[in-house]
């Protein structure tokens, strides 16, 4: 009887162990995810392919793109709010673009940077020549709190497996995010990308 109880307990423990290991094992998507270096606003983040520093985060109801000669384009509206991340990026070893710029919100949604042309994520970056400019995002205002900037080199996720990435905490606490949204200007003018 005692042997049977010991046997049953051992079996149950082994089964629990198998279930635990199975649950703790990362899924294929996690295993092949880009290798991200963490950072925060104002801090330079170095990946194997590029360096990035987020300098400023702004929120606006509409955006207008300035062409650098003082001419400002028409306002571009959104169903949510515009989040303008101003950053400095430099390629380290080879020419590239940081097309995979995403805002990852606290609920796990990912917002790829707007397709509007002339922004930093669509700029050719040459090694050692930093460029400064805006990256534009459209998101629902209620999802701004806790958003993190995730930057990779491709807009198509399948091309970024195990690739270089930077995950930058934008410091958007609930209170700060609400203040940014509540005081968002009706129109935000952003400049073109410039090499430094």
């Amino acid at each position: 009887m005692r042997r049977a109880i010991v046997g049953l307990l051992t079996g149950a423990l082994l089964l629990a162990g198998i279930v635990g290991v199975r649950r703790a094992t990362p899924g294929v998507d996690e295993v092949y995810a880009p290798i991200a270096r963490p950072g925060e606003v104002g801090e330079q983040v170095n990946t194997t392919a590029f360096q990035i520093r987020v300098d400023r985060v702004q929120v606006g109801r509409t955006v207008r793109i300035s062409d650098g000669y003082g001419l400002v384009g028409p306002p571009k509206t959104t169903a949510g709010v515009w989040v303008v991340v101003s950053a400095t990026v430099a390629a380290t070893t080879g020419a590239l673009q940081v097309q995979g710029a995403r805002l990852r919100t606290a609920d796990g949604a990912e917002y790829l940077a707007s397709s509007i042309s002339g922004t930093l994520d669509k700029t050719d970056l040459q090694p050692g020549i930093p460029a400064y400019g805006p990256i534009l995002f459209e998101i629902p205002p209620g999802r701004l709190a806790g958003a993190v900037l995730s930057v990779t080199t491709h807009a198509v996720k399948a091309l970024d497996h195990l690739g270089p990435a930077a995950d930058i905490d934008l410091g958007l606490s609930g209170v700060y995010a609400k203040r940014l949204v509540d005081h968002a200007p009706q129109s935000l003018t952003v400049g073109k990308v410039r090499e430094l």
């Binding site: 571009k76 959104t78 169903a79 949510g80 949604a109 707007s114 509007i116 459209e138 998101i139 999802r143």
Partner: peptide, 17 residues
């Protein structure tokens, strides 16, 4: 269709268009 122009085609999560 936004701002009377046809130059955008992204559909962002939670933003009706």
């Amino acid at each position: 269709i936004r701002d009377g122009r046809y130059d955008r085609e992204q559909l962002q999560p939670g933003l009706p268009e």
